[in-house]
Design a protein around this nucleic acid. Structure first.
Length: 549
DNA sequence: TTAGGGTTAG
């Protein structure tokens, strides 16, 4: 249906006569701009390319206005190099070309490219202006490069026009908030002489997004006293803040209050509540809220779907997961990268690893989370070779970077398959080529990997050489390996550490006791059992569940 | 040009 509509629209636009006078040129530009925008929203890359070709043939592409729309269109479709080509065709004397490209990259989430381009712009001798700085600050915020944000803040403070610019100040509040520097954000906010609604909302959101829902609420009260009326954004920021900290009751109370204030809960309000339920493992309430949302006539978005899918994944509820997948297809959000990544994860966790793989291969745009979910999926299903193969493919991609979870997933696969050397190389690669500092989970994977291969002394030496204090999982990996290879001496060392780290945990006692029993040391095994009884240590019973259709 | 909701582990 959508394709048919697109084709019809394309036919209409590509069969118009080439405009000859200025007025029709302008109105034509407007029509083409609308069409490009629509293709961007629909991610209709092929149709957009055809229209782009037509604009080149007719010469209309010389319009900076249309070029900027094309840049946005290509970034929306994830085609960064095409966006860049359009940019290169805009005359170099034109400052707007930088504003357009940097703005588009930042708006569509290509933050690293935004900063790279900003550097290039400065190398060309261009100075940033008030239109560019908000885009740069947004990129700094989302990449958590607070040092660069601070440098920009210094530039702002030295210029009276920047310092009084509301857009720049709001972006500074946003940047500091996103980077968790709420005090700095508050300083910028307090220094603003004319605080508009956006400034208030930026600060309210800063508090709300960092677990300070009550502070956000108090700030809104203050705002009301000063005569500034909250808008939908304010209400939604508060709802999200309370949902996130697990106070869904307050979030629902805010639903009522916003109605009294003349606002109806929209997609964002509902999604915030659903997301809060899912994050706090209140899955049934999440599904019920979703039903209420649909029943009340508010259209779920890609955000809603990607918030809800993890609830199916954690409960291995493939039936509901498939229903939501169907719903995502109906509302046309299946290709959204967050939705498709959540789908890959859901299918993998529900045991449908081939479905997950098929979906993954079909995806046009993949981000780090997509790759990680698939690598974890293969690793957890015992397809170690596939996981490592995928990991290697990921490293060859220019548009995606591995993170600490990518290496956790890949090391898990190596460990399951007993690929000691591959895992060790990976561990070095992570630090030396990708600059990722190993975390406890990476060390635990390595101990597991070396230990499974029976190299227990090497595994123990590896722990001793760790630059950070080993945790329960690291020592647990050694104890597990000792159990499998019957090394009592090292098992006792590992168990002692585990008792200190988690005195209430019976698992390590039992493991050691079994090890003694295996070795025929019945006296030691009995001694441990008696100690467990004396300390009333009980093993947590394992449980599993299946979904009944 | 600025403000609200999203996916991966343990």
């Amino acid at each position: 249906m959508r394709n048919l509509h697109t084709r019809t629209a394309l036919f209409r636009y590509t069969h118009q006569k080439i405009p000859i006078n200025n007025r029709s040129f302008q109105s034509s530009c407007e029509s083409y701009a609308n069409c490009i925008e629509k293709y961007g929203r629909d991610r209709a890359l092929h149709s957009g390319r055809i229209l782009h070709g037509y604009l080149i043939i007719t010469g209309l592409v010389s319009s900076t206005y249309l070029s900027s729309k094309l840049i946005s269109f290509y970034t929306q479709c994830g085609q960064i190099s095409d966006a860049r080509k359009v940019f290169e065709r805009i005359p170099k004397t034109n400052l707007r070309r930088w504003i357009v490209l940097i703005g588009a990259y930042s708006r569509h989430g290509f933050y690293q490219e935004t900063l790279d381009l900003f550097m290039e712009m400065q190398r060309e001798g261009r100075k940033p202006n008030q239109y560019i700085l908000p885009s740069i600050l947004k990129a700094c915020a989302n990449l958590s490069v607070v040092q660069m944000g601070e440098k920009i803040h210094c530039v702002v403070l030295r210029s009276s026009s920047f310092d009084s610019d509301a857009f720049i100040n709001c972006s500074l509040i946003y940047m500091y908030s996103k980077c968790g520097r709420l005090k700095n954000a508050r300083n910028v906010f307090d220094r603003m002489l004319d605080k508009d609604l956006v400034a208030w909302n930026s600060m309210v959101s800063g508090y709300a997004q960092h677990g300070f829902a009550r502070d956000a609420f108090n700030l809104v009260e203050k705002m009301k006293i000063l005569g500034i009326k909250p808008n939908l954004v304010t209400w939604n920021a508060l709802i999200a803040g309370f949902s996130q900290v697990g106070d869904s009751e307050m979030a629902l109370e805010l639903f009522k209050n916003m109605r009294v204030d003349g606002f109806e809960p929209d997609t964002v309000s509902w999604t915030s509540v659903i997301s809060g339920f899912v994050q706090n493992f209140r899955n049934t309430e999440a599904f019920d809220t979703f039903k209420q949302m649909v029943g009340s006539g508010v259209r779920p978005s890609s955000f809603t779907i990607s918030s809800l899918l993890p609830a199916c994944a954690t409960r291995a509820d493939s039936k509901r997961g498939k229903e939501i997948h169907g719903y995502a297809l109906v509302i046309g959000v299946e290709e959204d990268v967050f939705v498709s990544s959540s789908l890959v994860d859901m299918y993998a966790k529900c045991g449908f690893i081939f479905e997950a793989g098929k979906l993954f291969n079909k995806m046009h745009r993949k981000n780090t989370v997509t790759w990680n979910s698939m690598i974890f999926g293969y690793a957890n299903h015992g397809y170690s070779n596939k996981a490592i193969e995928l990991f290697n493919q990921m490293l060859e991609k220019d548009d995606v970077k591995p993170d600490h979870l990518t290496f956790t997933a890949a090391l898990t696969a190596c460990s399951h398959a007993g690929m000691v050397e591959v895992g060790q190389n990976m561990f070095h690669l992570m630090q030396e080529e990708h600059g990722i500092e190993p975390r406890l989970e990476h060390y635990a994977c390595m101990v597991d990997l070396i230990g499974r291969a029976g190299e227990l002394v090497e595994a123990y030496n590896f722990i001793k050489a760790m630059p950070i204090r080993p945790d329960f999982f690291v020592w647990g990996a050694l104890l597990g390996a000792c159990r499998n290879h019957g090394n009592i001496e090292l098992a006792e060392i590992a168990a002692k550490q585990l008792f200190e780290l988690e005195p209430e945990n019976a698992g390590s006692c039992l493991l050691l006791s079994n090890l003694y029993a295996d070795a025929g040391s019945w006296v030691d095994a009995e001694r441990l059992k008696r100690m467990m009884k004396r300390k009333r240590l009980r093993r947590n019973l394992g449980c599993s569940w299946i979904q009944i259709a």
